[in-house]
Design a protein around this nucleic acid. Structure first.
Length: 110
RNA sequence: UCAGUCGGCUGGGCGGCCGCGGCGCAUAUCGCGUCGAGGAAAGUCCGGGCUCCACGGAGACACGGUGCCGGUUAACGGCCGGCGGGGGCGACCCCAGGGAAAGUGCCACAGAGAAGAGACCGCUUCGGCUCACGCCGCAGCAAGGGUGAAAAGGUGCGGUAAGAGCGCACCGCGCUUUCGGUAACGAAAGCGGCACGGCAAACCCCACCGGGAGCAAAGCCGAAUAGGAAUGGCAGCGGGAGAAAUCCCGCGAUCCGUCUUCGGAUUCGCUAUUCGGGUUGGCUGCUUGAGGCGGCGCGCAAGCGCCGUCCCAGAGGAAUGGCCGCCGCGCGGGAGCAAUCCCGCCUUACAGAACCCGGCUUACAGGCCGGCUGAUGCU
């Protein structure tokens, strides 16, 4: 699973479609190419201290890993922006929310 | 046993499946092995290493820091030992602890008086008035009261009209000498009738220390695009001369001299190659170090020396995670006379390496160990 590492990619995704997903929300950008889907994670300092931010990032990454192979489409970048609730939410719920959000985004875009 | 005080340690364990980062091996595409957060990784408050910049030496001035003595260290504002002061029955704890006879300044409020001070209440001889209690006046005084953070040595005895270092003893203080101690300092003796209030976290004086910036330091490699320089090739627009190469005039543009005028230079463009700078990016710096552990020796200790042994995170939108099982701990609830058993808890504090070390400071659920002190009980 490819990760977003450049600021420019994050900025591009910020202008794309977004969908709420419970403890976080998803921003999507269509790169219009055939490469595999990529994900990026945004956890701001407002969310908590370093330990909490790391934990949130890891849980979201793990959830994305479970979901992306099935629900992610080639040529798309997905940025998951965490809210504080992602720290304590059950893992199963994170996975479910992400699946639902991706479905919603792609249905809407056709 | 209770109360207290000081110091140290720990910060869940085992296993399964699926993953992540580094390194090694490899059939180099599947894989295998191995290692992978902390005591504070935190705050970034000190001290260093390292890198770049600046700098001839030395000194002076300014600014900042430190401030009892000795030791320790690469260094420190750290640490260890000691001294002095204060607190506690004690173990022990606390101290921004140089200089106030170098100078300047400040000491609010209260109070009569706040630094060569002062007399509000008060005490007393004498004189006057009054039968008397007492009142008034001149003078002497500062014991007692009162104000204050602080009132110009303290306590006691003598002394006196009342008093006062006025005299004496002890304590304190100052000076001198001797002794002990490396020293800070301590002890003793003698002398002095007491001078020298506090504040230096007011300015200041003295001693010592200090160049600046930081791994986004610094070095290397370097794409596209734009721009710079050099060289080669082709080459502006209009008109004229010529067979042509080419030359002349005008126009535009750029540059130069001083803005204009005027004068000079270029042919400014396109293209190719090369060079230099350089952003995104990549690599190095990047983890072997004042290193960890063990033993021996020296030292009261901080620490030092020798020997052996180990390699123990190196990410970079930043790896150490997700889901389970069993055990353990804690809390809550229930059953039971009890031992114990059952159920529940999003089961664990503070917190995530970012160049590396030495400290300091701050945060921290629960648990463990040891030294010492006081009280009580038993022998």
């Amino acid at each position: 699973m490819q990760r977003l590492k450049r600021r420019a990619d994050f900025l591009a995704a910020r202008d794309g479609k977004r969908a709420p997903a419970g403890a976080f929300f998803v921003q999507v950008r269509n790169r219009h190419d055939a490469a595999e889907p990529r994900i990026g994670l945004t956890v701001t300092k407002k969310t908590g201290n370093a330990v909490e931010r790391n934990r949130i990032r890891r849980r979201l990454r793990e959830a994305a890993k479970n979901v992306m192979s099935a629900a992610g489409k080639p040529g798309f970048d997905y940025v998951l922006v965490a809210r504080r609730e992602a720290l304590g939410a059950p893992f199963a719920a994170l996975v479910k929310d992400l699946e639902r959000a991706l479905k919603k985004v792609h249905d809407r875009s056709g």
